Simulated assay, not measured.
Amino acid sequence: MIERPLDLDAVQAFLHIAELGSFTRAADAMRTTQSAVSLKLKRLEERLGCRLVERTPRSVELSAQGAAFLDRARDLLAAHQRAVTVFAGARQRLTIGISDHVAGPELPALIARMNAQDPKLLIDIRIGSSGELLQRFDRRELDAAIVRLHAGRSDGQLLAEEKFGWYAAAGWQCRAGEPLPVATMPEPCGVRGLAAQLLDDAGLPWTEVFVGGGVAAVSAAVMAGLGVAALARRMLPFGAVDVGPRLGLPDLPHLPVLLHARVADGRAGDALAALAAAYGSVVRDQGPSSIRP
């Protein structure tokens, strides 16, 4: 008697739960409800005759059987994708703009996640400022944009909010009696504008000592000891420290990260949903270690 085959949607739900560490995030990635994901997992566990996930009010962990099944589940879905790809036809392009203040060290893993979702999808990623990317999105040059909240915009899907701080190299000291040296990105960077406004409102003298064309350049200036910069903890180079409390600098708020998209259905929509769920997971956990390709 032939065994009943595994439900591939249920296997996919299990993988999302395992990789994102959350039923809610798995539901976001699959564009369904949390209850539907729970039901898929329950049916898969019944089919396999074992518990795959240990769920508590505070965490979601794989059982020993779930950990053993994880690689086999990946292999199963990869084999299925290879079989489908033979007949899939031409690649579909998905063009995504990602703000430089948003694209962090986990970007390779996020791209790998999208590729795993659909290897036949042609992923086209553009990095720039939030304002520039939103203009390109409005001109329909981008299918989607992941950016910081931008003045004058009230649209977009909230992915997460992340805390910013004033960071400098370990051991760096501000010279007494001199304006605060600040490394920034060029205008019209929204983070730059916010930081400048907060310093001005607090009556703190400051001077711009470095302007970088990207977060990597600003981080390099910080670690070179030029001064401080307003950065998200997720974007920090190793060894940077938050000097805001020590220097009495104004608190920087949690800044929203928004997804603007006109792609909702089909292969591109599925890949974008997986990207949004994975990115939201990274930002909420404040570090790249929580995501695996």
Rank of each mutant, 00 (worst) to 15 (best):
A78N: 09
Q157S: 12
G171H: 01
L15M: 09
P188L: 07
R55F: 02
A83S: 11
L48N: 05
G128S: 05
E178M: 13
A68G: 08
L41K: 00
L249M: 07
Q34E: 14
M114W: 01
D270N: 11
D200V: 15
A90P: 05
R25D: 12
I125C: 02
L41Y: 01
R51K: 12
S38W: 03
Q65S: 15
Q157L: 15
K42Q: 15
L149S: 11
E187N: 05
C50D: 10
V182K: 00
R292P: 00
F137W: 07
V283R: 14
V218S: 03
V11N: 02
V11W: 00
E19I: 12
D155G: 15
I111C: 02
A29S: 10
L199R: 09
P205H: 09
D75R: 12
L226R: 14
A88M: 03
D71T: 11
E162A: 11
L8R: 08
V215N: 05
Q81M: 13
T85F: 04
A168F: 00
G131Y: 02
L142V: 04
A112C: 02
L204D: 03
A274C: 14
L8A: 05
F210P: 11
P250G: 09
G131C: 05
L70E: 10
S281N: 14
R175A: 15
R82E: 13
T56E: 06
